[in-house]
Amino acid sequence: MAAPQVPLTVSQRLGAILTWGGAAAVLFFLLVPIFAIVPLSFSSGNFLTYPLPGFSLRWYEELLTSDKWLPALRNSMIVGVSATIAATVLGTLASIGLNRARLPFKPVVMGLLLSPMIVPVVITAIGVYFFFAPLGLSNSFSGLIIAHTALGAPFVVITVSATLAHFDIGMARAAASLGAPPLTTFFRVVLPLIMPGVASGALFAFATSFDEVVVALMIAGPEQRTLPREMFSGIRESINPTITAVATVLILTSVVLLVCLELLRRRSERLMTGAN
């Protein structure tokens, strides 16, 4: 791809320097908060300032022994996993249905299914707040799980639909023509091929729930305080080093999620090119 080596003009060189310099500065801006908060979690001091007085794991100890953070993590996992399962099952079925036939009003249906992603969360939150209270769903896990399922399902619909767009329907037809019942075709042929899309949708749905705080602020009771909810009050009231330990754990979680997504993307590419 190398273009013939022409010496760069001054302005071209200037342009390159500006681009690289600008990009480096912006990437620094993007990454510095993340890298600045991690070392503080290993500080032996009480204050969130540099230089660190010394190294210690006391904030992680605090995290593991507190009666606040572990229950919050447990609540987040309960809500996140349940909402992810519900969103993934509902979203995958819906995407397959949308992909399979030319349904009337398809754009309207699609718009409705994706709308939880577009409407500002605070509106969803107050809608749910008014609506769930008379049904006895506020201050309950079920209410939070229902709301998070609605917020996460659009991501599943998008990722699975994207995968299905490249899916070779001939595969399913071949299975059916060889005598496989529809369910067998689905579980043995279709699902394995669209699995990367389903899994990335699930990861998106989980990440959405795991980081959601506005709905949790509105409808979660003291028994359902999630990790983001605790972090919100932690930052608002008195930010202490335990929060940096929580933050470090969450950063690690997002690194793991990111790696999983990248692996899924590669697998999906392989599967799709292999299918052709």
């Binding site: 079925l93 397959i96 036939a101 409705l112 709308s115 969803t124 609605a150 399902a153």
Partner: peptide, 22 residues
């Protein structure tokens, strides 16, 4: 009909848990 049957659960869910509240 089958396709609609697949879409219906999520559609109903979004209507009840999201569109109606709004």
């Amino acid at each position: 009909v089958a396709a609609f049957g697949l879409v219906a659960p999520l559609l109903l869910f979004v209507i009840v848990s999201f569109a109606l509240p709004i």
